[in-house]
Amino acid sequence: MHSSKFCLNIAGDTPSSNRLFDAIASHCVPVIISDDIELPYEDVLDYSQFCIFVRTSDAIKEKFLVNMIRGIGKDEWTRMWQKLKEVEHFFEFQYPSKEGDAVQMIWQAVARKVPVMRMKIHRSMRYSRSLIHNNRELRTIPTPSNFW
């Protein structure tokens, strides 16, 4: 992998995979074949600067991948390769954790999501008072004498 210029990152049956991390650590430009992949730190990193994205419908076309990769010039590949070297530390786990490593990036991603999650919780609770009120009303409805 370390001597490869491009590494396939094919969607699997789980949301995460080591393939992407291995490619980045090896400075091998990831060729991501997926329509709906969720990438780590995507709200911070522009993966299009160091990855190639291919729709699954295009990837299954005969010779599409080979022609696409052959169409990437040396200058473009070099730019992507240099960007890989710049971002690789975001994917490295260290003990103890250091500024800008994977542990710090994960905590920062969690911190960015907390306000959104709080807002969703608060929004979901908007009508909780009326639900409680309605549930109380349902409990007080008398059942007909011949029901049971």
Results as ranks from 00 to 15, higher is better:
C7R: 00
N146C: 14
M119E: 15
M119Q: 14
Q108D: 12
T140W: 04
G71R: 02
V116Y: 11
Q49E: 13
F6A: 01
T14Y: 15
F90T: 05
E62A: 07
T78S: 15
M1I: 02
L45M: 06
A25Y: 04
I132T: 11
E62R: 08
R70Q: 09
S128G: 12
D58Q: 14
F90R: 13
T14R: 13
R129W: 09
P142H: 10
S48W: 01
C28F: 04
E86T: 05
D75S: 13
Q108W: 05
M125V: 02
I37K: 09
A109I: 00
T78L: 14
N67V: 01
E38Y: 04
F53A: 05
R112T: 05
I52Q: 00
Y41I: 02
R118W: 08
V29D: 00
R79W: 06
D101A: 05
D101F: 03
S4I: 01
Q108V: 03
W148Q: 09
E86M: 09
E137H: 09
V110M: 14
A23K: 00
M1T: 04
N134G: 15
R136W: 09
D36T: 11
V116Q: 14
L138G: 12
T140F: 08
V44L: 11
I141C: 10
N67T: 04
A59P: 04
C7W: 01
H89S: 12
R19V: 11
E86D: 08
H2C: 07
V103Q: 09
F21A: 10
W81Q: 13
W107Q: 14
P15W: 13
R123G: 14
M105P: 00
F50Q: 00
W107V: 08
Q49I: 02
P15M: 07
R139G: 15
I69H: 04
E76W: 04
W81M: 05
P96K: 05
R118D: 12
D43L: 06
F53L: 04
R139D: 08
Q94E: 14
D58T: 04
H133I: 03
C51P: 07
M68S: 10
Y95T: 08
V44E: 15
V54N: 01
C28D: 03
